[in-house]
């Protein structure tokens, strides 16, 4: 095993991550303005920004889903119990006692088990929920004529709001966890340069050096 700097976050993944971040911030900012919690934006502009942001994020997501499936990157998010307990124990105990993070990044497992599980939950639960409710909300005029539509719209809107709160809570924790390593900057850097420190097997190292020389330093 050798520890090397490897291209873990390719250009599209970084583009996806940061564009998604910007759009989600815009959607939270405008969404809570629609909800009446954000006086910095009036209702008209909030609706325009929220709708435009949502449509842009849908397009981005179509590309991202395609990318996950075709590149095989979906495998990073397959849940595993292997090491999950140790990571959880680290955040609840070890971190206060100067222990080292128990997880070592691997070439085909760049997230720790807890991280992978929470991203998976975000992608398979919170995001689909916000999309389903958001699209139903956006296209209300297509189903507003069915009996009880207004009551259903209320349910849709309330669910949408609740999920938005959950996503905001996720972001708070997500950003906080960036501070738990050596430094905040060190955590953010891989998502900018794409290179992260990874334990490579000799085979992986040999493959990268020979076939992907620009992806290993």
């Amino acid at each position: 095993m050798s520890v090397r700097q490897v291209m873990l976050y390719t250009r599209f993944e970084r583009f996806w991550h940061w564009t998604q971040m910007l759009l989600i911030v815009a959607l939270l900012f405008s969404g809570f303005a629609v909800h009446g919690f954000n006086p910095a934006l009036d209702f008209y502009n909030a609706v325009v920004l929220h709708t435009a942001g949502a449509l842009a994020l849908i397009v981005l997501w179509i590309f991202a889903i395609f990318w996950h499936l075709t590149t095989g990157n979906w495998r990073h998010y397959v849940p595993t119990a292997n090491g999950l307990w140790q990571v959880a124990r680290f955040y609840a105990w070890g971190i206060f006692h100067g222990e080292r993070h128990p997880y070592r990044k691997a070439y085909w497992r760049k997230h720790n088990p807890l991280q992978a599980l929470s991203y998976l939950a975000l992608k398979l639960m919170l995001f689909p929920l916000i999309w389903a409710t958001g699209l139903a909300y956006l296209f209300y005029s297509l189903w507003s004529a069915i009996p009880g539509a207004s009551t259903m719209l209320e349910g849709v809107a309330l669910a949408h709001t609740l999920v938005a709160f959950a996503i905001l809570a996720f972001i708070i924790i997500h950003v906080y966890l960036l501070t738990t390593g050596h430094s905040f900057a060190e955590h953010v850097k891989p998502m900018i340069t794409g290179f992260d420190t990874v334990d490579l097997t000799p085979e992986e190292e040999a493959y990268l050096e020979r076939d992907e020389p620009r992806h290993i330093r």
Binding site: H35, T151, F165
Partner: peptide, 25 residues
């Protein structure tokens, strides 16, 4: 008799949401 965005809120949803935010922060 109808839900209108920006006008209507549900205090349970808002309460639960704020609880999530306060909890995470």
């Amino acid at each position: 008799g109808f839900y209108m965005p920006g006008r209507d809120r549900n205090r349970w949803v808002d309460g639960l949401g704020l609880l999530m935010l306060v909890g995470s922060i």
